[in-house]
Design a protein around this nucleic acid. Structure first.
Lengths: 341, 341
DNA sequence: TTGTAGGCGTTATCAG
DNA sequence: CTGATAACGCCTACAA
């Protein structure tokens, strides 16, 4: 079944393409009679404007690109969901691309979106991203652009973030409050701003509480996996038998921590208390249930799209848009893995 | 920064648009000299063809649509990943849409993809989908179309499936093999083919082993959630204290089962053995680790795209394509929740 | 109230 | 080897 065109409708009705076009868009200068005739026929023929042609004319595709490090990830799934739903509400479609935590791939994906001429770009940087070049290009081209979660501070785009330092501080303070004296930190890779910030939050909170910071108690993930959680916990227990608290960069890692401790019959939280970050669903069904920092992933997706939409609208109207940074709140969730009284 | 066009390059070089276009596409009938000049300038100006115009001309967008019930779902995340990666390899982009398990929304999303004029559609039906109308329309319009996972058998499209009956039978047979005499089944909703098939697999296997089927031992999920797993287990234990095995429609539900049993100190697998379906990551980190059926989600995504690609290629060449059904293998994974010797 | 004409940027055909 | 011309389908001044 071939798609109908304005031309065909015009021919069938013996009128001009222009009139058909106008009638369908409810222009005031078309007689009610023709309007009705056109609309009826269009309805009957199941007419929908050819979006390729509309795109070309309007220079818009009502499509945005979303680049994330990894699709199979509780946090990012929720972001995707938020973005898709908010986009849908506003008549936008979403193309999803993965960077697989590789800078090179991330750059390639940005190029793809350039070629596709999406109306806007949403991005959470890969852990590997220590170069800004491709982001600068987005700005130079004047494409509406919002960074979220893992961002590059120096790029003058809108940003949706949480206060990682503050949130990490809350986690560590909580461990201290329940009596932990020697807290290890399994941190994320070197580059990402949020893994740096969480580390800083950890460090500052120790110092604030008069606990000397010891770099030997910090273990650095390469890939932020469950397996690394298991492995580092093994090392922690071996190297520092008196550690009584572990703060992990993310719940996935924390669950690795719990697994190792459980299997080796190390009491949680009595001997070692554990807290993660992100509030993955999984944490609630573990035994013991995992304490964590709730990070509003779904809301982050919504906020990111909303801000992008604002910028896209400004752009369409030719008005100026000044990038904004929105900080979303986090909250401490205390569950069994760090509950003492 | 405005995008460069063929016209501009042509003007700068004092040659025709046609020649520029041909030079860039390496037509044999352009002199090496002009070719080089054009390519150099194009490179320098960062020229990329305007995809809107290309789409209009070629009637292709090199974009496909993927409709799934829910993004935040281990199985579907993996499918998405497979689709995106395979699409990427072949120069296609993927627009993702959610049906939220609602028929109405699913229909709307299909319409959106029609309007967007994607080159092909991939779909896994919502649990609510008891109507085929919108799927028939995809066929009528001649849009390349592959169903996967939750499919409508009657629609003559390509399909990627697993043998749910066989896989469920393997799960139940395993429970019987380790000595279970009274096995309850927490099944999925009425409509989806796979929940029906898994139920049939359960029923047939009981009968094959001389265990009478008892419909009272079957509990039906509405939303296939963790909470339903918890709740139904409570009922099972109350109504049938002698149940010694539970087969759940999916791992998420099975994890609810485990949670309830753990919290109520009912020994797994000794008093009640548990097996799920799908092999979610979560199942590996539970205590006890969850037995399950591995379902190749990532591979399903790859297979779905590959088949769609074949159909899209046929369509482009104008050759005929006959829908195929590909059945992927599953395997039983025995872990602690059903391990006895 | 209706229609003509031009153009969005590319590709394909065909003539020079 | 090169280029003029005509689409693709729609939108929008501007005429009539």
């Amino acid at each position: 079944m071939k798609a109908t065109t304005l031309k065909e409708i015009a021919a069938m009705l013996g009128i001009s393409i222009t009139t058909v076009s106008k009638a369908l868009k409810n222009y005031p200068d078309v007689s009610p009679k023709t309007k009705k005739a056109v609309k009826d026929l269009a309805e009957q023929l199941n007419f929908t404007p050819n979006s390729f042609a509309v795109n070309l004319r309007t220079k818009e595709s009502r499509t945005i690109g979303l680049i994330i490090p990894e699709v199979v990830h509780h946090f990012f799934s929720n972001v995707i969901k938020g973005v898709i739903e908010e986009a849908d509400k506003n008549g936008y479609l979403v193309i999803i691309l993965q960077s697989n935590e590789s800078l090179e791939l991330e750059q390639k994906q940005v190029e793809l979106l350039f070629n596709k001429r999406v109306d806007g770009i949403l991005i959470s940087l890969s852990n590997d991203s220590n170069d800004d070049h491709h982001l600068k290009k987005i700005i130079t081209r004047g494409i509406p652009f919002v960074q979220f979660d893992k961002i590059s501070k120096l790029i003058p785009s809108s940003k949706i973030v949480i206060n990682d330092q503050k949130a990490a501080a809350a986690a560590v303070q909580h461990l201290i409050d329940i009596g932990c004296k020697k807290i290890a930190h399994i941190r994320g890779p070197e580059n990402p701003q949020n893994s740096v910030d969480r580390f800083i939050g950890y460090k500052k909170t120790l110092e604030k509480n008069g606990i000397p910071f010891d770099s030997k108690l910090v273990y650095t993930c390469q890939n932020v996996t469950y397996e690394e959680g298991v492995e580092f916990t093994k090392q922690i227990v071996k190297d520092h038998p008196d550690v009584d608290g572990i703060f992990a960069i993310t719940d996935l890692v924390a669950i690795g921590v719990l697994s190792y401790l459980n299997e080796n019959h190390i009491a949680v939280p009595d001997q070692i208390a554990v807290i993660g970050f992100s509030n993955w669903f999984m944490g609630q069904v573990m035994m013991p249930k995992l304490s964590t920092i709730d990070q509003p992933s779904y809301d982050m997706g919504i906020a990111a799209f909303s801000l992008l939409l604002e910028e896209m609208n400004c752009r369409r109207e030719g008005s100026l848009f000044s990038p904004r940074t929105v900080e979303l709140g986090t909250s401490l969730i205390v569950r069994q893995s760090s509950f003492k009284n």
